[in-house]
Design a protein around this nucleic acid. Sequence first.
DNA 1: TCACAAAAGTGACGAAACGTCAATTTGCAT
DNA 2: ATGCAAATTGACGTTTCGTCACTTTTGTGA
Lengths: 213, 213
Amino acid sequence: MSHLGQGMSETANVEPIGKREKTKVANRQAILVAARQVFAELGYEAATVRDIIRGTELASGTFYNYFKSKEEVFDALADDGARRFRPILRMARENAKSFEDYLHSAFVAYMHFIVQDNQLEGRPIQERRPHIIRMDTPEMTAVYQEVRQSLEDAIAHGDAPRVDADYLACACIGIAQEVGSAMLRRSPPDIDAAADFATGLILKGLVGAPRQG
Amino acid sequence: MSHLGQGMSETANVEPIGKREKTKVANRQAILVAARQVFAELGYEAATVRDIIRGTELASGTFYNYFKSKEEVFDALADDGARRFRPILRMARENAKSFEDYLHSAFVAYMHFIVQDNQLEGRPIQERRPHIIRMDTPEMTAVYQEVRQSLEDAIAHGDAPRVDADYLACACIGIAQEVGSAMLRRSPPDIDAAADFATGLILKGLVGAPRQG
DNA sequence: TCACAAAAGTGACGAAACGTCAATTTGCAT
DNA sequence: ATGCAAATTGACGTTTCGTCACTTTTGTGA
C-alpha cells in the first residue's frame, strides 16, 4: 500500500475513500435532504418519489438504487435521527453523577434534540402535518435498548427500585415523546421545564413533578 | 305521524331511519371493515384504494363518495377507535371513588381496549407492520381533553399536586401508549400488571411502581 | 299507484406515479 | 491508455389514481 497512486499524473488521491463511495454517500444524503424538505412542504402522504428526486440532481431511476420506496426513505430519516441521538444519550449516561442526573440529562438531551430537529425543516414549521409516524428502525431499537440497559444498571446498583425495566424504559420513552411534542407546541419551547417535569414524574411521581399549572 | 304506512301493502317501515341513510352508514362501515382487513394483511403503505374497495360489494368510484383517500380512511379508523373509547373513559371517571381509582381504572380501560382492538384484526397479529401511525383526529383530541380535564379537576379538588396539567395529560397518554404496546408484545398480555405499573409510576414515581423485574 | 327529481352507484377513461431496464457514462485497476 | 464493473439515465410499459357521464335507487307528492 506504499506505492498508491505513484504513476498518476493528475489524480490527487490523498483520501482513503474513493470517489465511487463518496458520491454514493453524497447521493444518498442528497435524497434524504430533499425528502425531508418535500415531506415538510407537501406532507408525507402527498409527496411522491418524483417530488423527492426532483429536489436533487439525480434521475428518477437513480432513486431506486438507494431506496425501494418513499416509505424506506422515511424510515432512513428516522433511523438517521436515532443514530445521531444515540451518542448524545450515551454521553449523558457516562457523564451522569447519579441516577437522577442521568435521567434529567437524558430528558434534556432528547428535548434539545427534537427542538433542533424541528427547527431545520422547511418554512412551515407550525403547519406540520397532523400525522406523526413512529416506527421501529434498527437505530430506534438500539436507543430503546440503551435506555433499558441504563435503567437495568441503575436497578442493579440499587439506585432504583426493582421495577419492570422494560415497562419503565417504555414509560420513559413515552413520556419523552408526548411531553416533548407538547413542549414543541408551546412558544418558546422550554427545554428545562419539560425535562424537569419528566424527571420529577419518573422519580417521585406526581409528588415529585414540578408545581405550577 | 299516527297514520304512517297505513295504506302500504308490503312495506315494513317501522324504523325512523330511511334506507338512504341506512345504506350510507352500511357502506361506510363496509369500507372501514375492509380497510382494517387490508391494512392488516398488506400493511398501510402497500394497500391501495382498489384493494380496499375490492373487499366490499362497491364499485371503485363509490369509494370516493365516502373518503378522499386511503389516508382519510385510516384517520377514520383511528377516529372511530377513539370514539368507542371515550365513553369507556368517561365511565371510569364517573365511577371512580378516588383519584387513584380513576387513574387505575382509566389505564385498565385503555389496556383492555387495545387488547380487544388488536385481537380482531386479520390473522397475522404478530407480523404487524412496524409502522405505528398516530395522529390527531377530532375524537383523539377529545380524548386528550377529557384526560386533561379530569386531571385539572383532581388538581382543583386537592387530590393531586398543582402540576402542569397539559404535560401530565401528555405523560399519562404517552405512558399508556408505550407501556400498552409493550404489554401487547408479551403473551399473554397482563392488563392488570400494565395498569398497576402505570398507575404506580404516575402516583409515586419509581418508588410507587410495582416491584419485580 | 305512479311519475319524477334528487341522491347514490357504476366502471371506463385520461392522468399521474410507479418501477424497470437497455443503453450510456463514470470510476478504478491493470 | 484500455477494459471492466458499477452507477446513472430517462424512456417505457404497468399500476393506481380520481373523475365523470351515465344508470340505478330512493324518497316524495300528485
